[in-house]
């Protein structure tokens, strides 16, 4: 049985790479990545090319087919499953990550175009056990119900605050429009963002 303080992610990922507790391994065996890629694309004949990505401050070398999205690479190969797949068409924002400091949807990003860029995922926000202020604010304001869209909401919210689009609730709503929440937690999400933005100004 897992200990009481075991996280949900550790529980789900039991036996697999543990992302929260351990550092991201610096090199992923190409064979493993190849297997993951071919799981996604059984017909694949395109060359599997090794690429090196900077993810949450760590370097990861993987061999992937050109068609693999950054989202699939994160989730299926690197087991960074905090980034969620919703629509896989750029409409829902669940897969939002930061590339070179800018928020993007990882489902519409080819992983093989990310070499040399700095990628930050939801796993890279906290400082050890200390949550990022936006993560803490989402907890405080109950900014979710099922939680599936939450990593994307938080990644967008962090970027939006940095961009300075927190002047009013309307401005926050407009600049959070790329993140959909089917549970309808929007009022609490806005309260969380307002809280963090206010603390910054104050």
């Amino acid at each position: 049985m897992p200990r009481a303080d075991t996280t949900r992610r550790e529980l789900l990922g039991a036996g697999a790479v543990c992302v929260t507790a351990g550092a991201l391994a610096t090199t992923y065996p190409t064979a493993r990545a190849r297997a993951a890629a071919s799981d996604l694309s059984p017909a694949g004949e395109a060359p599997v090319t090794p690429i090196t990505l900077q993810i949450n401050g760590q370097s990861a070398t993987v061999g992937i087919e050109p068609r693999v999205s950054l989202l699939d690479l994160l989730r299926e190969t690197l087991e960074l499953t905090g980034t969620k797949k919703g629509c896989d068409h750029g409409s829902c924002g669940a897969c939002t990550v930061h590339i070179d400091g800018k928020r993007v949807v990882s489902c519409l990003t080819l992983a093989s175009r990310c070499e040399g860029k700095q990628i930050v995922t939801i796993e890279g926000l906290a400082d050890g056990d200390r949550l990022h202020p936006m993560q803490a604010a989402f907890l405080e304001h109950d900014g979710y119900q099922c939680g599936y869209c939450t990593p994307g909401q938080i990644m967008s919210a962090v970027a939006l605050t940095r961009e300075g689009h927190t002047g009013s609730d309307d401005e926050i709503r407009e600049w959070m429009s790329g993140n959909i929440c089917r549970c309808g937690a929007y009022p609490n999400i806005i309260a969380a963002i307002r809280d963090v933005a206010g603390a910054r100004e104050g």
């Binding site: 750029g90 924002g93 800018k102 519409l108 429009s177 790329g178 993140n179």
Partner: peptide
């Protein structure tokens, strides 16, 4: 047009 994430891309 689109969303902030898409406009960054």
């Amino acid at each position: 047009a689109a969303s902030p994430q898409i406009r960054n891309m």
